[in-house]
Design a protein around this nucleic acid. Structure first.
Lengths: 177, 177
DNA sequence: ACCTTATGAATGAATG
DNA sequence: CATTCATTCATAAGGT
């Protein structure tokens, strides 16, 4: 359960000129609403617990008596896929491309790939970009994990096991106006 | 003291495939988000007040002693974070500063900001600097993607600077292919 | 139904 | 600044 820690604020700004929204924008909106939904629920829980062990303080009485049950409950149905999922065909193509050219393709290339893949389903350049990024990162990690004979048998929830945490922070920060 | 029972809308269900929204729908969405925003703020206030006049309740410890900022910290990683994560309050402040002053603040200003933000959690000047850098870059990318118009379902969300912009691919390394 | 795993996406930090 | 890397978060898919 995510909440306040994530991305809360500001509603999307559409360009105003037309009201055509892109998929991305739609998703952003959906996510925003979802986040608010979660937060509200959490806050309600907190407040419940808070009130539960407290005398009926007279001063506040905010929402008063109304049951929490009727509060929103905007828990969204999966009206649409929340995140992109590559189709089989798309995956095959991507996989093949990845094998050939190692590394993330440049912008132009990404655009081409995206256009091609779109013929097999909804997809955006960002999806493609992310895919390559993730693919690369995970291949790398997988590889170095194998080479380490650490004999670890840890079951990490996240497939990415933090090997060699390189903690480098606070460099000189030499920037002037 | 708002009435949070009255109108908690449910997320709009757009037709999914077609991403053309009418003015009306846009308005509705904006309003929904706005409502959530308001409610969240109010709930936070409520809860604050609630805790304020209460002894250190032992049983519950919902958010524990941690500030609201970190409420969102997901359940299964309570351990120390390896990288800085802005708290809610910090984020709000940063966001506000970003809106006002355009661009990355100079060194002096960063120092001040950092000192201020430190009151809300661990933070360094580098963190602040990086934040502004990233924020700017991503805002830019976001903006140019919004400016794409007319029937293009093209969208890019994260991914750094996907397209457009007289990019210099010359210096873009040439991955084999 | 719940739990685990795989993986798309977000973002702080680093590099050029 | 522009790009890229590394880590983390969230969820779709799959197993039991």
């Amino acid at each position: 359960p995510p909440a306040m820690g994530s991305t809360l604020p500001q509603p999307i700004h559409t360009s105003g000129s037309g009201q055509v929204m892109t998929d991305e924008q739609m998703e952003t909106l959906r996510r925003q609403i979802s986040v608010y939904s979660t937060i509200c629920q959490q806050l309600v829980e907190m407040h419940k617990a808070c009130l539960a062990q407290q005398p009926p303080l007279p001063g506040i009485m905010i929402g008063g008596q109304l049951p929490y049950d009727q509060m929103g409950t905007p828990n969204h149905k999966p009206t649409t896929r929340l995140r992109w999922t590559p189709s089989q065909i798309q995956l095959q193509i991507l996989e093949r491309l990845f094998e050939q050219g190692n590394g993330t393709p440049n912008k132009q290339h990404i655009k081409e790939i995206t256009d091609e893949l779109r013929r097999h389903g909804q997809i955006t350049e960002t999806n493609v970009y992310n895919w390559f990024q993730n693919r690369k990162a995970r291949a790398k990690r997988r590889h170095q994990q194998v080479s380490v004979k650490d004999g670890e048998s840890e079951a990490d929830t996240d497939a990415d096991s933090p090997r060699q945490k390189r903690q480098r922070q606070d460099r000189e920060l030499t920037h002037n106006e």
